[in-house]
């Protein structure tokens, strides 16, 4: 990892410390600064309220010229999070072809909070869950809440 990338990550972490984003907690390890662990609370107004989701943010060597890679370590029933052991997300500014170097991790975290409140059904990584979200909202909410209870307490 280049000195520039390290400097940039350090700077972003300092910004997060000075102005902590609400509803989340960042675990930062200076020995391994390219891997952040973030604990995100399910937003109050969302079906994920009450849940606590562990996220991992991995910074590529080319950061900030390539986007960070975000994955849910806590299982979540959500159209935009892959329903496997990776829990990966790839949409919006996280996509390689939409990422802009001035974007910051905080913006990524805010995007995730927004997605917890309102999933993006057009850009789903789990089409079946997206379909359920679209066609059978009740069933979707039931499953999502069920998973919160099961995995995210």
């Amino acid at each position: 990892m280049s000195a520039g990338a390290k400097k940039r990550i350090m700077k972003e972490y300092t910004e997060c410390m000075n102005d902590p984003p609400t509803g989340m907690k960042i675990n930062f390890n200076e020995q391994n600064m390219t891997k952040w662990e973030v604990l995100v609370d399910g937003p109050e107004q969302s079906i994920y309220a009450g849940g606590h989701f562990k996220l991992e943010i991995n910074f590529p060597n080319e950061y900030p010229f390539k986007p960070p890679v975000v994955s849910f370590k806590t299982k979540i029933y959500h159209p935009n999070v892959s329903n496997d052991d990776k829990g990966s997300m790839c949409l919006g500014l996280l996509r390689a072809d939409e990422w802009k170097p001035p974007n910051k991790v905080v913006a990524v975290l805010r995007l995730i909070q927004t997605l917890l409140i309102e999933p993006n059904q057009d850009d789903a990584i789990e089409p079946s869950i997206a379909n359920e979200y679209k066609e059978n909202r009740k069933e979707f909410e039931k499953n999502a809440k069920d998973w919160v209870k099961r995995y995210a307490k």
Binding site: N83, C90, R95, A96, E126, S128, I129
Partner: peptide, 23 residues
């Protein structure tokens, strides 16, 4: 989860899509 026979191809597609966008 919907029935698996329907889900799988979509997942494969998504995987392929990811591979192609990561290429």
């Amino acid at each position: 989860m919907a029935d698996a026979g329907y889900v799988l191809p979509d997942e494969e597609l998504a995987q392929l899509q990811k591979l192609s966008s990561d290429f």
